[in-house]
Amino acid sequence: MTNEAVSTAASGAHGDLRDSHSLLPSVIPPVAESLRYNGRNFAQWGQLVELTLIGRELNDHLSAEMDPSNPSYKSWKRDDAIVHVLLLSSMTKDQLPRMAFLKTAKQIWEYVEKNALKKSNLWRTYELVIRAWNLRQGDRSVTDYVNELQTIWLELDHYRPIRNPDEWEYTLRDRMFKFLMGLNPEYESVRSQILNREKIPDLEQAIYLILEEEGRLQVVSSTLKEEASLGMIAKVKNQRTGEADLQSADKVTGQDAHETYQNRKSQGSRDNKSSIVCHYCKRRGHTKDKCWDLYGRPPRAQAHSAHTGVSDPEEAEPVEQGNVKCMGKSNTEEVIHLREELEKLKALLSSSAMTSTLTRPGKEPEDFTL
């Protein structure tokens, strides 16, 4: 079979051959590109091929051939061709030229297996052991973590098959330790319980216990998130209520502060006025230049006095100077009234004197000064 024939057979595996009434459509499933044999993934590819052929009862074509003289040879040859095409159609294009001169499915299988194990068995085993040992759960779920570990272990079992039961028991124990070692810290309590048991469970039991703990933690986490959400809503609500109360309190406090300021201002004004003394009337609350006794009451003060009955809006207190005590506001009005009446009388007398002088010339006017 030439290279061109091999390529044609491989590319036509899902085409013309599927249109026939042979067993091919039920034997050759479509193979994803990532699963095709590329010279470095014999373990995964080989497992896929074996499972496919076992399901069709054609797996014996990988390990045995039939003598052409056998009466069933023709039927066997037909089935072998199907397996042959399956192997070729599940390889990458760069692998096909090497299979050009191989006549049976058994020859292809042995050639691929021999070269794959010869090239990469030791290094691939080393790589898988390191990868399994360094693997940690991290952001994965427990299920994903277990699946990745088991994928590595399956490939290791292919490269390094274990046939001794005692050795297999220790291998499973080591894998259980590795599984527990790579778990996240939240599983520490269950991990300690497993290791402190008198009889250490096997790998499957340990995985089951950890999966149960994962389910419990998910329920707890969901509950805590719900409570945190409700708490946040309550906190925001309380915060808004507190802000409203604070604004109301600030408003009241501001009003109180304004009133306090006005009261202090008024009190300070009264205190300042009470410390002022008039040098003319000797009363507190005003200075000499604003003394009513000296200059008279202004119109506004007169109106205030008529309305309230108080001649001075400030409560003037008598001031002692030596042994003399000046009168207070109660006597001041009488004094002012008497002075006004006296001024009127003097004006009247002065007017009378001038009249008398005009009627009797040559005679000096009399002095009526009081």
Rank of each mutant, 00 (worst) to 15 (best):
V6F: 00
A10Q: 01
D19A: 12
R36P: 02
R36L: 06
G46V: 02
Q47P: 01
Q47C: 06
E50R: 15
T52S: 08
I54T: 14
I54M: 15
E57G: 11
E65W: 03
K77Q: 08
D80L: 05
S90T: 10
M91N: 02
T92A: 04
D94P: 02
A100R: 07
W109V: 04
W123Y: 15
L128M: 09
W133G: 12
L135G: 03
S141Y: 06
V142Q: 04
D144W: 12
N147P: 02
W153I: 07
W168P: 01
R175K: 05
N184A: 04
P185A: 07
R197C: 02
K199R: 05
D202K: 07
I207V: 14
I210W: 02
E214D: 07
G215P: 03
S221R: 12
E227C: 05
M232Y: 13
I233H: 13
A234S: 11
K235D: 07
K235P: 00
T241P: 00
S248N: 10
A249N: 09
Q255K: 00
E259Y: 00
T260Y: 03
Q262E: 07
K265T: 08
S269D: 12
Y280C: 09
R283E: 03
W292T: 14
W292M: 09
A301V: 05
A301D: 04
P313E: 00
E314L: 08
E317Y: 10
K325R: 14
C326Y: 15
S330G: 04
R339S: 08
A347I: 09
A347E: 09
L348S: 14
S352A: 13
E364N: 11
L370N: 12
